[in-house]
Design a binder for these strands. Structure first.
Lengths: 244, 244
DNA sequence: CTTGACCTTGACGCTACGTCAACGTCTCTA
DNA sequence: TAGAGACGTTGACGTAGCGTCAAGGTCAAG
């Protein structure tokens, strides 16, 4: 039997057979005068054994160990571990499918999808309306949602909910629009103080406190702003500090 | 933000971040004077986006496509395909776990395990009793079980069942033992004709017909036999042919 | 000035083979 | 007897998503 015949008999590729030789799973057979591998029934029997175990899902390393031990004692143990592993995989896939199903339910499926359902709701209410500022803002909310620990996340969601109420959403969009408008403005632009005042009036104290808590965080946020926007937010911070 | 800080923020390794740069999933940020990557919030937002999609199970290639399209239209399609794929995986795992459970039920778990339940029964009844001939014979039955198409398999099982009946099993083991005994014997040994006659008496005609059907198959089987055993089986074949 | 923590690029490792490449062997046929 | 075509040989790269050195540069602190 040449390698192609053996492979066809057992139902694998010749590459697979050679691979098993390389790994020592299958002994190299004698060679013909021409250098071809000459297989016998024993080889087919062995190869079939390997395939049966492989099709169960054992790794080739595990198969080698099992065949080396030869006894059924170790095999039973390996199979149990494998079953546990498969059970975990099934569970993980189930979880992912549940998340997928929830996502597919959503009417909008934007770049910031795949966040938690609660944050998804907030983001949908605040809707990406083409505003550059809104995009960054909502991206950061999505970031927060994926990296914050559960309690911080809950806290943030509670703090955000007021913005999603009808009547308030429109004000938020108006702020986004005004921030976009002044993006390229001069730092001394006359519209800035009014915008800062309006923003400060809409941001609750607790949110402000949390935001300005970390110096580095604030630096990172300010680094994303245009000079004019930065001026506005420095004024907002000042106003909120005075107020609190 | 340096790479380590970004990675910690989003919850990945620095290697992962660099990998995403390499794949073009994440744009390379500016560098500090010292050559360090200097990240900003936008990068964290983007990285979090990538991670959310990756954790859903999308491949990095798919993520790049989805982010390139930017629209939710394609994302929905990709997610549906992914869900189908996961459903298939779940089913496959379920099948494997069922086979595993069946296997773990079995009291004996030998080298030829993981065959079909029916063949498992036959092999258990014929039990590996240390006979070298029995080992090869039963290995070949296992091979047959894994490579034959369903109808041939059914046929073989029906033809084998008589051997597993109480009263017959003992005769089978006796034959195995006698074949082992004469393994190294002279081709002219006086025990050979009797053994051949006894074997022929126990092998039904249909099985004999099937076995001798393929020339190559017979060659492969004979190649596994010692000279004395080969003599015996040539006599068996002759006897069965005369009888049929 | 040194230490130690961080950064840089480059490259190999992992799983289970698929897929060339470049070349030898064997069988069949003109 | 030569050539074609089917098969075999070894060697090496590719896959997915990073982990893990290696060999070295940068930076803040003591």
């Amino acid at each position: 039997m040449l390698i192609g015949e053996l492979a066809a008999l057992v139902g694998v590729s010749t590459r697979t057979v050679r691979h098993y030789h390389h790994l020592g799973l299958l002994p190299e057979p004698e060679r013909t005068s021409g250098g071809y591998r000459a297989y016998r029934m024993r080889d087919a029997v062995l190869l079939a054994r390997v395939r049966r175990l492989a099709e169960l899902g054992l790794s080739l390393d595990e198969i080698r160990d099992v065949l080396a031990d030869d006894q059924g004692k170790d095999l039973r143990e390996v199979l149990r571990e494998l079953d546990d592993d498969l059970a975990r995989q099934q569970e993980a896939i189930g979880t992912r499918r549940a998340r997928l199903a929830a996502l597919l339910e959503e009417p909008e499926l934007g770049a910031d999808s795949a966040v938690s359902p609660e944050m998804g709701e907030v983001l949908r209410d605040l809707a990406p309306d083409g505003s550059a500022f809104a995009q960054l803002d909502q991206g950061m909310l999505a970031l927060l949602d994926t990296v914050a620990d559960p309690e911080d996340r809950e806290w943030a969601l509670r703090a955000l909910r007021p913005f999603t109420e009808p009547g308030v959403v429109e004000r938020v969009h108006e702020m986004y629009a005004r921030l976009d408008e002044i993006a390229g403005a001069d730092p001394g632009d006359s519209r800035l103080p009014a915008l800062a005042a309006d923003l400060a009036a809409h941001i609750p104290a607790e949110l402000a406190g949390a935001m300005s808590g970390s110096e580095e965080w604030m630096d990172l946020v300010f680094a994303e702003l245009t000079p004019a926007q930065a001026v506005v937010f420095r004024q907002v911070v000042a106003l909120l500090k005075k107020e609190g």
